[in-house]
Amino acid sequence: MTYQASDFPGRSPVYRRWQDQPATPVGDTLAPLVTGGAGGAQCRLRDLSALPRGGLRGADTQALLQEAGYALPAQPNQLVQSGATLIARLSQTEHWVLDTDPAAPSDLPAVQAGRRVYTLPCQDSHAWLVLSGPARAEVMAKVCGVDMRPAAFAPGALAQTSVALVSAIVLHHQLEGEDVFSLLCDSAYADYLWGALLDAMAEFDDAAIGSGAPPDASA
């Protein structure tokens, strides 16, 4: 069936950018289909904002997550990928957990009173965009001062930096078998960043946006 974003209470900050494309419900939010990868395009931009994510920070965060069985990155500004789950470490005491498979969201452990662990509203504070394709590092070089060529920014790397003049977190990881950049930015800047990235992508042949899935995939 065909869905309307406005039928769902939760809405991605950039849903108008892809609302003509096939989409599927994720919880109480409509999400564009994420299958298909870059599909041979030089670069592709997708919106994963509806997918589940959360964060914890505070002095006891590391201990709490380890007790819950999470394998954590050894250092800040690294991420560990286990299946469809990304565990990103932003500082000594801050970790985010992101799920690329909406069907299997990670339940962050409950925080007992008195422990120095605080939840972060990552689902709402940040939009989640994905830039994929072989030209992704070159696209990023047009909007970001951090070297994101694979030799300098290998899969598993994380950068908290400025992208097109706004703060963002860039994660290098695998999605559906290909290396991609996830960009997490203030959800209020998401529409702006989407436009800035499209502009940076425009010089590449076959630049693509949205789901990349064939139209009948929405059936």
């Binding site: 047009k142 003049l165 209020a188 702006y192």
Partner: peptide
């Protein structure tokens, strides 16, 4: 490429 970041509420 002149970049003018803007923020929009939902």
């Amino acid at each position: 490429r002149v970049l003018h970041p803007y923020r929009q509420t939902p």
